[in-house]
């Protein structure tokens, strides 16, 4: 077993060092025909907020070359309805569930974390922070998530805030860190309504294989400097990519939206990492 929260009283053991990233895999009910969930270490759910959120208006995807920007608005039906809809499914899943919580205010974060406490097979919270958050604000959200529940808390660090946040969050009580959330980016939108009205742009989260090199750079810079496990996320598109992350100090990897093109990617990475573990052992 791989321990993702060694400092937590219950820990967060997972059987395999690969999992889907928040927002890529739904709530566990979507890819079961295509992916053998048993090869994964955990399910990281789509982002959940205390209150329901609607989808962003307008265009939500813009593609440019090998990468794309997505802006969904993180729609979800709120933690209470998500639990009503999925808690029985999660209890039956062969892998543990980590709920990705959208951290808005400390009060809302605490209320949402409290509702997740004691849900069968929910073994952890991954806290999603907004971009450009201050360290003080991030720590107050982390405290709120930890105060109202017994679950280990992983914090997904915004791409541009790793230097400012990673060490402080690790020393401030985070049980693990996900490095990183996708960076913010802007791309022109193809086939926008009213082609005559000039170029339209979409601001959102950037995905694509090019992010891997940025991720590896981040991992290399922080290797051995963080007192908690690191989960690598961003641009991982092959078993070799995942192995590179582990060699640079990551404890586990998350596969982001690249799995939409190839859902079997998760299984191939899991198989590749299993061989890697064997050869390393």
């Amino acid at each position: 077993m791989i321990e993702l929260a060694p400092r937590h009283k219950f820990g967060l053991p997972i059987a395999a060092p690969v999992m889907p990233a928040a927002g890529a895999f739904g709530y566990g009910d979507t890819y079961h025909d295509l992916v053998d969930l048993r090869v994964l270490g955990a399910l990281v759910t789509n982002p959940v907020s205390l209150n329901p959120r609607e989808a962003a208006r307008g265009q939500r995807i813009a593609i440019h070359g090998e990468h794309f920007v997505a802006h969904t608005g993180l729609p979800n039906s709120g933690v209470q309805r998500v639990l009503r809809q999925y808690r029985q499914l999660w209890e039956r899943l062969p892998i543990p569930v980590i709920v990705h919580l959208i951290a808005t205010t400390p009060t809302e974060t605490a209320q949402a974390a409290e509702r997740l406490a004691g849900i069968p097979n929910v073994v952890g919270i991954e806290l999603g922070l907004i971009d450009n958050i201050t360290p003080q604000r991030a720590l107050s959200l982390l405290d709120a998530a930890r105060a109202e529940g017994d679950l280990p808390v992983i914090v997904r660090v915004p791409f541009h805030s790793v230097d400012a946040l990673a060490l402080r969050l690790a020393e401030g009580g985070a049980d693990a860190l996900t490095l990183t959330a996708p960076p913010r980016a802007i791309l022109p939108v193809a086939d926008a309504p009213g082609d005559d009205e000039g170029i339209h742009y979409l601001r959102g989260r950037l995905y694509g294989p090019a992010l891997l090199s940025l991720l590896l750079n981040t991992l290399a810079r922080w290797r051995g400097k963080l007192p908690v496990p690191v989960i690598a996320c961003g641009g991982i598109a092959s078993p070799q990519d995942a192995i590179a992350c582990l060699e640079l100090g990551a404890t586990a990897v998350q596969v982001d939206a690249l799995l939409w093109r190839d859902p079997t990617l998760l299984q191939r990475i899991a198989a590749g990492l299993a061989k890697f573990d064997l050869s390393a052992g």
């Binding site: 890529a24 989808a55 729609p75």
Partner: peptide, 21 residues
Amino acid sequence: TAMPCGVGACEVCRISTRAGE
């Protein structure tokens, strides 16, 4: 509309309806 995953995971294809999204 854009439907990148096709299985309801990505939330990109949500549409507003009289009965919610």
